[in-house]
Design a protein around this nucleic acid. Structure first.
Length: 818
RNA sequence: GCAGAUGUGGCGGAACUGGUAGACGCACAGGACUUAAAAUCCUGCGGACGAAUAAUCCGUGCCGGUUCGAUUCCGGCCAUCUGCACCA
């Protein structure tokens, strides 16, 4: 075989010289923004997962280009983040140095893959010309009240003396030393993503995204309808404000529970209970996350000594604290109805609290407690006899009338915590001035540069705090002495807007030009792993909406269509990981077989959306396929084929053209759906048909034959770009195959030749006849009736029914034997 | 526990809106070519019973239903995987 890695290199050089993949922003063709989740240069090289993600996605972009779109296909690097910093802590190599080096390597490898990227539009999030604008966006959100600071619990590793990001916490343990983490409270910056909860939920329905991912986001946002109710606290002016989705059970409240961290606890605890309550709170804080979150664990709590008054019944009920109530969901305060809630029931049993049934089943049978279904109200005074649904409305109305409650909606979505007590990220552009308070760094002073020389070994403080040079500054408002914010931004902030930067990547006046982005965005297709369903994909949606509301762009969603590639597992069926020793490197395969064989094998051997365990057996088969293609082209260029006279189309030619037309049709649909495996199968079928034609036809029609081979090669171009280019040249073509148009289906050809019509008796296949595809339905039926099986059936059996789907299938239903 | 996805030959995987189950390929077997091997080409290849390229029966996780006809639709299970998980 002639194809090899050398072929790849030759064409890569040529394409670069010719600027084949340069994006023309002024093109009149319709734009198509093909986007892949940019890569994270944590490892030194592209791994198999990158290849599986990027190579087929690149084929898709090429396909779109051939279809006549002005394809914008950029690539960049999500370059800030913990892995580089951890690597630095381990090896002493500065994150900037290792990241720069990794990016260079990966870029080169992406070129070796044959990626049709235009690197003039690349972004690297760790570069000042990018993070300047990340910081600028932060200041805009801050001015708009969408960024704020508050005390929040963080993950604390007491052994490393540092705060950990959620990603660094594995099974509630520090990823580095394995110590179980604690929760501590620190002042943290947040983005107010909850302001957009409703819109984020609502817009999902219009997105061309996998339903499962929409579902993940729906659950993540977690909208629930319910009511708030105020319970007055006895002998004080204070109230407990609870949220409940089951306000119909309010008459069954026998105690109240407040999250131990709540500020109100200190105010209501009676002197007698103070010691116990404080001890409980201390224990809760010390309690590690494993135990706190475990549903297995027995519930614990403590009585505060205070009592609350039920606004509906007037009942006086004790107020407890318990860690099964979470501070940051709802109001952090709940009404406990042990008869109709499993958690409350368990708690009531343990602490010997009363249980009062107020709901019974709709068929009025005895029910076992806790009974959590909807039903009919009992023991609820004037609400007795109502259904749960009716009672919810009535009770809420009553609360509203008394000004003690209202209908409300709750979301599980929490505000996005963006502070990281880490070095390798974009510094939060905030200055703390004693006089002026918190001041955003003005645009003219951006970027706030990340200093290079910083001790970033973890010892419990933000690394930037140790750089006096960085920390000390002047207040932009009053000019007085001030200090900088020492935390950096979560890398998800950097990656939440990169797709907006690409089309205007070199703009040094703005983050992006409004007209440019309105023209280019949203991305028409976005390809990446489904592990980002709840984080990155929600953050990017939020950022788009926030920037829209601030007037910087005019669309609502960043990604119109979303496709998730599957994951290639290790040969043992487990997720690839260095510790398991089951990783597979693409490099040796590329060297041995060339990028196109490897790309084609990845696309053919696996379902793109599912992935699967790695297995390289089929790669030789792909090599064989390449050899067969080369052989065909060689036989043409070496004039080994004897052509006949031009005549009217024979049945063989019609069959060849039909298969060709069908191949175009299927491949067009398949690639559009990212079903590369079947697209390649169809392509192979066409080669089989071409060879069949050469074998069978006595009079080879040169024009038809060469036409089919030409289209056959063009169909290969997006899938094996270097190889197809090489063959194209061998076929005698001067220009690049990548400038060709994607072939169109000729309907006439599609319906030519012969076709098969299956014949069934009682739903079971008995025969199959081959008919001229242009035959009329009557003619076909006549042939069917002559089929020996049918003749036999007519002779021997009573005929009950005859079903004929014209030209498609025939089914005879027989009765008793004659 | 809740939600979602998946389940088809020895293997990877096909099958449009219900219409020839197993496309395409791997592996395997037989044959051709060769002194031989490799490569290549041809043929076969779900299972059962057959000498059979004869006929019949079974077969898409399991049980049942709708239909002339079900991998596809409906009801009920089972298994695996992935999210979320004391969310009031």
């Amino acid at each position: 075989m002639n194809y090899s890695k050398q072929t790849d290199l030759k064409w890569q050089k040529k394409w670069k010289e010719d600027g084949l993949y340069k994006f023309d922003a002024n093109s009149k063709k319709p734009k198509f923004y093909a986007l892949e989740m940019f890569s994270y240069p944590s490892g030194a090289k592209l791994h198999l997962g990158h290849w599986f993600n990027f190579a087929p996605a690149d084929s898709f972009a090429r396909f779109k280009k051939m279809q006549g779109y002005n394809v914008f296909h950029p690539m960049g690097f999500d370059a800030f983040g913990l892995p580089a910093e951890n690597y630095a802590i381990k090896t002493g190599i500065h994150p900037e140095d290792s990241t720069r080096k990794n990016i260079e390597t990966m870029k080169r490898q992406l070129e070796e893959m044959g990626g049709s990227y235009d690197w003039d539009y690349s972004v690297e999030t760790c570069m000042p010309n990018y993070y300047k604008w990340t910081q600028w966006i932060f200041t805009k959100l801050y001015e708009a009240g969408l960024a704020y600071k508050k005390e929040a619990p963080v993950n604390w590793c007491d052994s490393c003396k540092t705060v950990l990001a959620n990603e660094q916490v594995i099974d509630c343990k520090c990823e580095r030393c394995g110590t179980v983490i604690e929760r501590r409270k620190l002042a943290q910056w947040f983005f107010k993503i909850t302001d957009y909860a409703e819109e984020l939920l609502d817009c999902l329905k219009d997105l061309d995204w996998p339903e499962s991912t929409k579902k993940v986001q729906t659950n993540w946002i977690g909208k629930s309808y319910g009511s708030e109710a105020k319970f007055k606290i006895e002998n004080t002016d204070l109230e407990l404000n609870i949220f409940s989705t089951r306000i119909d059970t309010i008459s069954g409240v026998t105690y109240m529970v407040v999250a131990p961290e709540s500020d109100i606890v200190k105010k209501i605890t009676t002197p007698e209970q103070k010691e116990k309550v404080e001890k409980y709170i201390q224990n809760t804080l010390k309690l590690n996350e494993i135990d706190r979150l475990s549903t297995e664990r027995e519930k614990t709590g403590e009585f505060t000594g205070a009592y609350a008054i039920n606004p509906i019944t007037g009942d006086r009920v004790p107020i407890w604290i318990a860690d099964y109530v979470l501070e940051d969901y709802g109001t952090g305060q709940v009404m406990a109805v042990p008869a109709h809630d499993e958690r409350d029931y368990e708690f009531a049993i343990k602490y010997n609290l009363p249980i009062k049934q107020v709901i019974t089943s709709k068929d009025e049978k005895e029910v076992e407690l806790p009974y959590t279904d909807y039903g009919i109200l009992v023991n609820s005074g004037k609400y007795d006899g109502l259904t749960s649904e009716e009672a919810k409305d009535k009770i809420t109305e009553e609360l509203e009338k008394q000004n003690k409650g209202r209908k409300t909606i709750n979301y599980r979505l929490k505000d996005w915590l963006i502070s990281r007590q880490r070095y390798w990220g974009a510094p939060i552009p905030i200055i703390n001035c004693e006089k002026c308070g918190t001041v955003a760094v003005p645009e003219k002073d951006l970027p706030v540069l990340l200093p290079y020389d910083v001790e970033f070994r973890p010892d419990g403080e933000s690394p930037l705090k140790k750089s006096k040079e960085f920390m000390e500054c002047k207040c932009p408002k009053c000019g007085g002495p001030a200090t900088r914010e020492a935390d950096t931004l979560d890398t998800f902030v950097c990656s939440s807007w990169y797709q907006l930067r690409y089309p205007d990547a070199k703009n040094d006046k703005k983050a992006f030009d409004r007209d440019v982005i309105n023209k280019m965005a949203p991305a028409d297709v976005y390809v990446g792993g489904k592990e980002h369903a709840a984080m990155h994909l929600i953050y990017a949606r939020f950022m788009t909406k926030a920037l829209r509301d601030l007037g910087y762009l005019d669309f609502d969603e960043p990604f119109k269509r979303l496709v998730h590639q599957g994951m290639i597992l290790g040969p043992d069926g487990n997720k690839m990981s260095k510790s398991k020793g089951n990783t597979v490197s693409p490099d040796e395969y590329i060297d041995k077989y060339g990028a196109d064989i490897f790309r084609m094998y990845l696309m053919f051997g696996f379902d793109y959306k599912n992935g699967g365990p790695w297995d390289d057996k089929g790669i030789e088969a792909m090599t064989r396929y390449f050899t067969r293609i080369e052989k065909l082209i060689d036989s043409i260029s070496n004039n080994e084929i004897t052509y006949g006279e031009e005549k009217e189309l024979s049945i063989e030619e019609k069959d060849l053209l039909r298969v060709k037309a069908r191949t175009i049709k299927s491949m067009t649909q398949d690639i559009q759906e990212f079903q590369f495996n079947t697209a390649i199968a169809r392509h192979m079928e066409l080669l089989n048909q071409i060879n069949e034609y050469l074998r069978v036809s006595k009079n080879i029609n040169e024009k038809i034959f060469k036409q089919v081979v030409t289209e056959y090669l063009v169909l290969l171009a997006p899938l094996a770009p270097h190889f197809a280019e090489e063959l194209w040249k061998a076929f005698g073509k001067e220009t690049s195959i990548h400038k060709e148009e994607w072939p169109k289906v000729n309907e006439e050809e599609l319906n030519g030749g012969t076709k098969q019509v299956p014949i069934q008796i009682n739903g079971k296949l008995k025969d199959c006849i081959s008919v001229d595809a242009e035959a009329s339905n009557e003619e076909i039926l006549e042939l069917i009736k002559k089929s020996p099986k049918i003749v036999e059936a007519y002779n021997n059996f009573e005929i009950k029914k005859e079903i004929y789907v014209p030209g498609k299938i025939y089914n005879l239903v027989t009765g008793a034997k004659k």
